[in-house]
Design a protein around this nucleic acid. Sequence first.
DNA 1: ATTAGTTGTGAAAACGTTTACATAAATCTA
DNA 2: TAGATTTATGTAAACGTTTTCACAACTAAT
Lengths: 340, 340
Amino acid sequence: MKTAKTVASLKTVASLAGVSIATVSRVLNGDPVVKDETRLAVQRAIKTSGYHPNRVAQRLRSTNRSKKLIGLLIPDIQNPFYVDVIRGIEEYAYANGSAVVIGNFSQDPKREKLYIDILRSESVDGFIVAPSHGKDQDVEELINDGHAVVCIDRGLSNLNVDVVKSDNEKGAFNAVAHLIKLGHKRIAHITGDPAIPTTQERIAGYIAAHKHYGIRVDQKIIKGKESNFISGVEITKQLLALPDRPTAIFTANNLLTLGALETILQQELKIPEEIAIVGFDDVYWATSLNPPLTAVRQHGFEIGQRAIELLYQRIQQPDRLPANVIVKTELMIRRSCGFK
Amino acid sequence: MKTAKTVASLKTVASLAGVSIATVSRVLNGDPVVKDETRLAVQRAIKTSGYHPNRVAQRLRSTNRSKKLIGLLIPDIQNPFYVDVIRGIEEYAYANGSAVVIGNFSQDPKREKLYIDILRSESVDGFIVAPSHGKDQDVEELINDGHAVVCIDRGLSNLNVDVVKSDNEKGAFNAVAHLIKLGHKRIAHITGDPAIPTTQERIAGYIAAHKHYGIRVDQKIIKGKESNFISGVEITKQLLALPDRPTAIFTANNLLTLGALETILQQELKIPEEIAIVGFDDVYWATSLNPPLTAVRQHGFEIGQRAIELLYQRIQQPDRLPANVIVKTELMIRRSCGFK
DNA sequence: ATTAGTTGTGAAAACGTTTACATAAATCTA
DNA sequence: TAGATTTATGTAAACGTTTTCACAACTAAT
């Protein structure tokens, strides 16, 4: 039977129940004005016809619906941190009968723009975005055009906007402090792309920890170019080739950590005896590493949840003051940085 | 300036260009019938008004549009294999101006059903689904209702449908054959959920390799319950406690591998000297493991691409015969299973 | 100069909803 | 009992498109 059944619409239900489509619509939307008797007849008709509301028509017609469509702009879906964020968002969304359209722009501002255009055309009710950089024109425009937007992981420098992110500075501080307390005095920092705000915040935490414990900061061993695996490999190589090689490395995200690990492995250095390592971003496979990795855990799931809560609020109340939610991080101490 | 600008519509453009909305629509859809002069005027008006087509209205009105909305039902977005699949789909989709709505149902048939309902209401043009099991009623219903559906990773037992998946049996065969060739005679297999078709196929490959090399199969060391981390931990513990402990383990997916690795690590056994391991599913961090993990690589990205290509074809030609695409796997030999 | 055909455009219906407004029926008030 | 109010429902417009059909203005053919 390949003939596509025509799906039931309001009209179908209406004629089945012997009422007008307006009444059916009222029943669907829980309007208390309809007579109980009518309501029951309509509900019966809905059942027997197998009617499901057409969200496309709903979206076209009204701007004030409860079941929403949320647009999600993610810089890198391969990064487990963002996967956690997505899960947090999705969980909340579907619990509220909303759906999530996803755009993974791989840190490419051009793709980001493309996706924004598409999502806009789909009339999504709101956006959750990790802007590709601090002065992201496209996201700014989105906001200026009156769309509901919540930023995750990074804010916007020119615009006051809802932001949910980790406490990057404190997270970095704790990681580095932990290394210092273990006796390390020469700790390198492999940073992410310097253009990204989080990178700067993590550097700040790294420096603050040094200051706090009275250890000199050597700018030469704070290095970074991009936030990817290759960059992690390259910079680790450079660091390990140094005459006064650091005894520990603090990497600014999970891809850099991976690059560093691979390089250390290739050079057959023992972790943590010959080189200790602490990474920003905990990952679910960190405990299966040999040795298990000490890492700064970001609560991605919670970040996602908070973001979508803020978004719902923003949609209902477009003029409320922008909120700035900082989610705490947690240092997961394992064995990659040595024992006391 | 918080007052939401009203966005430009066909009407806006039409009045700006001094033509009817029908003409504007024709220009947008490249209808050759319009006079060049008119076309230019309309194009100018489109530019100055900043008009973008409203895809919601388009979707409501016509069933035959080129920019599509694709619904994606993923069993587990935390599994890197599916992330690759998503990327393959997304890449193709966005290159064609289509968007992707995602539903991650975490292996939960109830959530799967919920998502199917929502995506259906969003009038998506087609679905790509990894059915939660072989006789997934909800997916069957979807197909019977005339929707375009392509299955990934697993097919449907009662229905002939487009399927794209890995060559599970051969992949498992190669992995186990590799271990045998290295001299292993007692190889355990930690399987996924026995209800999932892929699990059975991988078991079949495991057995075939034994048969092929004339090695007895010991059913006692083929064990599995669920496809998750915990299951990997538990079964590895059981296996390692055996009096005649296997010298190698073949794990049926990346989560099981992770569970096995953690357990092996905790018991401080040396890989591969004391216990070798080969996993189904290569992951991007496999080379950063210590030692790097030998694994059967599934080409998730390619699977995604093939799936969405099939879906586009299916949409255009609903009656074409279902295709069955088998994507080859690749054994990535690293150091977790010993040297010759 | 009339007819027939061609070319470009506009008017209007349709998609499936929501919602402002009108209206009929029922109830209340004096 | 007539008018006023309340209650329940229906009518029709609107959202932004696509698309069928009609029609006007030309051009070509007789």
